[in-house]
Simulated scan of single mutants.
Amino acid sequence: MTTETAVAIEGLVQRRAHFELGPVDLNIPKGYVTAIVGPNGSGKSSLFRLMLGLARPDSGGVRLLGEQVRGEDRVSLKTRIGYVPEEAIDIEDRLSGEAKSAFVRQWYPGWDVNYYRELLRRFEVDPALKLGKMSKGMRRKFELSLAMAHHPELLLLDEPSSGLDPIAWKTMIDALHRFMERGDRTIVMASHIIDEVRRLADYIAFVAQGKVLGMYEKDALLEAWQTMYVDAGGRTLPWKEMPGYRSCDLAGGTTYKVVTEQAFEAEQWLAAAGAVLVSKRKLELDDILLNLTEHARGVY
């Protein structure tokens, strides 16, 4: 079965004086949550702005929900999208939450006032407050409620949990799970919170230094990346020939600590080589990101 694409990015490049993004080629499937994960300054927010047409690329293009993103404002496309930027917009500080929602709702034919009020209640947001008087966490919850109120087909979230306390974070996770229950909606989120990615994401795209290092199905990724402790029996094995080889260090005696991104194939290779697999453990997502980033930088 062919999976529809919600976001298609092809040959996207943006050059700035001190940073270059791309070229980026990325297809994000419809109906799933995809997390874009990477260190600060890796280009995640720039990628979001390019996806929305808020900035122009030097080359390449983006298609959202089957429509080409161009420099002009395309209301028909944007009514199908919800977006929460990483930083709040300062010029809106003097507006109350109610005033902003009254302005925003007129652009969305699918605006659901009951759903909007339900989200505000669940997030414990007082919309009568001016945005500039809200705490960072409350303003984040307000912006998320606003972005979800018209039931968008595509929800773009740039660091959605920034400023949230643990209780609000759990409420957000639950709200996003419920948002996805219909099966035809898509979330693309940038996050550096590993537990958030683990709880929400179906797919993970790793980004570092303006490059996409790879896109993976989350469960398959966590199953495939493993650290193995191997007794080589005093022999020197051609470790770099092992499937999915990433690194190898002597752990003590005749035992080696080996990292692979193809665990099943690596075990078969070790068995054929007559080596003994003493133990193994799955890598955490942050360890995988570190490994990918260091490879991209040529550390290994």
Rank of each mutant, 00 (worst) to 15 (best):
E196K: 01
E72L: 07
P160V: 03
I89H: 10
Y203S: 02
A102G: 05
V37Y: 05
V113Q: 14
M172G: 02
D195P: 05
P160D: 04
M138G: 00
D158T: 00
F19M: 01
S247Y: 06
Y245D: 05
R246K: 10
V299N: 09
W107Q: 15
T3M: 10
H150V: 00
Y216Q: 05
M215R: 08
K240A: 14
A205V: 08
L129Q: 13
P109M: 08
R94M: 10
W107K: 10
E98C: 08
P57G: 08
R297D: 09
R49C: 02
F48H: 03
I167W: 09
D286S: 11
L77W: 03
R198I: 15
W107N: 12
L292N: 03
L157Y: 01
R70K: 12
L119F: 09
E196A: 07
M148S: 00
I187N: 00
A168T: 06
K280C: 10
E159N: 01
D90Y: 14
G66E: 06
K240I: 08
L131G: 08
V7D: 01
S279P: 01
T227I: 12
D112R: 04
K133A: 13
S135F: 08
G274H: 01
L277G: 03
N114I: 07
F206W: 01
T293Q: 12
K30Q: 15
H295E: 14
A220E: 14
T171I: 13
A208M: 01
I187S: 03
V125A: 04
P166F: 07
F264H: 13
R235H: 09
E181K: 13
P127C: 08
E143N: 11
K280E: 10
K30M: 12
Q14M: 13
R198D: 12
D112N: 13
S96R: 10
I81L: 12
L200F: 04
S76Y: 13
S247M: 01
L144I: 15
V62M: 02
K136P: 03
I193A: 10
V33H: 02
L222M: 13
G38N: 04
Q106E: 15
L131C: 02
P57Q: 04
D231W: 08
G210K: 01
I9C: 03
E87A: 14
D93H: 15
I187V: 15
G110W: 11
S76T: 12
G132L: 05
L47H: 00
L12K: 01
E223Y: 07
L12I: 05
T254P: 09
G53C: 05
Q226I: 00
L156D: 00
D249H: 14
W169A: 12
A6W: 02
V113R: 11
N114R: 12
R16L: 15
E72Y: 07
L221P: 02
L176T: 01
E261Q: 10
V278Y: 09
